[in-house]
Design a binder for these strands. Sequence first.
DNA 1: AATGAATGAGCATTCATTCAT
DNA 2: TATGAATGAATGCTCATTCAT
Lengths: 205, 205, 205, 205
Amino acid sequence: MARNSKGTAAVKTVVADKREAILRAGVRVFAAKGFFNSKVADIAREAGIADGTVYLYFKSKDEILHSIFDRAMANFIDEGRRELEPITDPIEKLKTIARLHLERLSADRDLAVVFQIELRGSTKFMQEFSAAGFAEYLDIIKRTIEQGQKAGAFRKDMKPVVCAKILYGALDEMVTNWILSANKYPLPPMADEVLKIYLGGLLVK
Amino acid sequence: MARNSKGTAAVKTVVADKREAILRAGVRVFAAKGFFNSKVADIAREAGIADGTVYLYFKSKDEILHSIFDRAMANFIDEGRRELEPITDPIEKLKTIARLHLERLSADRDLAVVFQIELRGSTKFMQEFSAAGFAEYLDIIKRTIEQGQKAGAFRKDMKPVVCAKILYGALDEMVTNWILSANKYPLPPMADEVLKIYLGGLLVK
Amino acid sequence: MARNSKGTAAVKTVVADKREAILRAGVRVFAAKGFFNSKVADIAREAGIADGTVYLYFKSKDEILHSIFDRAMANFIDEGRRELEPITDPIEKLKTIARLHLERLSADRDLAVVFQIELRGSTKFMQEFSAAGFAEYLDIIKRTIEQGQKAGAFRKDMKPVVCAKILYGALDEMVTNWILSANKYPLPPMADEVLKIYLGGLLVK
Amino acid sequence: MARNSKGTAAVKTVVADKREAILRAGVRVFAAKGFFNSKVADIAREAGIADGTVYLYFKSKDEILHSIFDRAMANFIDEGRRELEPITDPIEKLKTIARLHLERLSADRDLAVVFQIELRGSTKFMQEFSAAGFAEYLDIIKRTIEQGQKAGAFRKDMKPVVCAKILYGALDEMVTNWILSANKYPLPPMADEVLKIYLGGLLVK
DNA sequence: AATGAATGAGCATTCATTCAT
DNA sequence: TATGAATGAATGCTCATTCAT
């Protein structure tokens, strides 16, 4: 029994490790050369395995990109929910979202490149991207805004979903700019800048 | 003489027409199938010319994408400058920018797809994209904000370039969302929404 | 007009020539290495063209094999009909069929190999092979036998289609054996041997 | 001792069983998908063993096909000899051969497919096929015919080996046709038809 | 300028075989 | 013996680009 379960666990670990290694290699390679210019052989080499082994863990090159996104998005959303749960103030929630968004992506530049650049390279991916975890992420922002509107903290003359997109767009642009500027400055502090405008507006009161 | 100049003009026109036809065909084809999945032969067929003819006007498939961007960006900036020139109020200027941004892209969905999706498909393109007209566009927004700050209309505790990125990011996200939502709603009105938040902030005063 | 038609004819000839060259190369290569072991690159090299050029004339490697069969079978049947037409005696007809069968295949050993060996390598090909020209060939034999039965020359207690298969099988075996025996003996004379038995039977009368 | 010999026997039996299982699986898989389209993994799954285990019993995929032929041919010849031994009349012998040929192959359609189609798929196999048991089989027919000639039952103006090939070719064609016709009719009765012609000839006497 | 036939480098994927366990 | 994960060589086909006409 113990032996069995241990064996199974070990196998699972090895399998997970190799899957993991391929995904990590995929992030590095896609970030460096772009999805269409990356060869499966590049990923295999980077992961330290044979070309064919990739296909024991993924059905296709496409599936690797998908899995990268799915895994990262799941992690991101998990962590987001965990950090947001204890917070009740919607303003604080938005601050946390913005900070997390920029912290997470600046912590792994390769992943950020894949998210900001490679995943956008085709309507097909974008559609799926949109349909999948992205919608969930936007929904978290949207509900925080609804909550803020109910609480009387946020203005009520705007649709929450539009507000959510605006915040997301602003943050997203910060990330893209940061990537393209070769990371000359720290990304997370940009969260405060975005929120200054987003919450307070540009106009002098 | 007359014949010459006329001939030259005619030639220039024909040349321009064919270049133009290829670019238009490129926009349609790239938007429909994505840059990497589009064949030069597709573009040639769409433009009604032979495959080889494409290479009399463009050095490579890449160059077609570049030219599409360059031409559209130049048009866009030209028109922008023209419309902004008579306006003095920085608030009105920002409104004009936002409106033009969404109007222009919603007026040509194929071009919008190429701008929002295909041009983002590689760090390489993004770098070039960034280096080129995009910086100029961002600069126009930035200077409008500087002007507004000097005029005392906009708050001064924010860097103009960051403000510019935030506005750009928000507008950009509107366009991307509109594309992916299959254009179920008119895009230009979103300009007002963005500006409501951007100028006035989300918080209740 | 003349120029046009001449141009068209020239183009057709060139095209036909290249198609022809590929088919001839295919016969040689398939005969030498077997269909599954032949690479498209082998055929291209043998035909003196680039790999990609093969695909301007054929959709796939499979299609080359098919075309080899179709072309040869069509030629064979055409020639058969032409030679059989002036003959009225069904016995002479059968003799002509048998002679032609062995003459044609022994005249082009590579083609014979493809017919006897490579085309049999898969039920899929065999089905198609059977459905296509082979049925037509068998039908020619069958009708000759029917004619002989009506004329009172051939016994009537046998189904013509069965008789046709028996003759075909015997001839086919002669060809296969000849191929596998490295052509140590001339094939055509075997036609007489087959017919001696086929027409007269093995038994002493 | 007892234990040893028993153990050895058991081991041998197990070994034989597994070899047998692989061969049976090979026949099924090759018949269904063709030799080149069959994967070793398919055979392993069909045999209920692991992929690698196949290589404990066979050196290669080729060897499986060879062994299928060798085993079946040996069985076939053994049974043939056994059934022919008590028969003295060469006519009866030929009838027995023809009947057995069709009975055995129609009794195992998968095996028949492998014999008629898959084994013919390459000159290489054909050469080996020819060199091996096939020659032995043809020899049995040949000697029966020699015997008949000596006994004065068969005509003497034909070489026995040619007569043997003719009979074999006719029978072989019956089998191939039966396979390709999806077994719509019983095969064994065709033996009589073949012999009617083979022994008596097509001509009215 | 225009053509489009020809080129040939490039690549995702498969699968027979091996080998550590 | 048995396993099945890992290997890596092998290849049909595509398509950007060239060039003879």
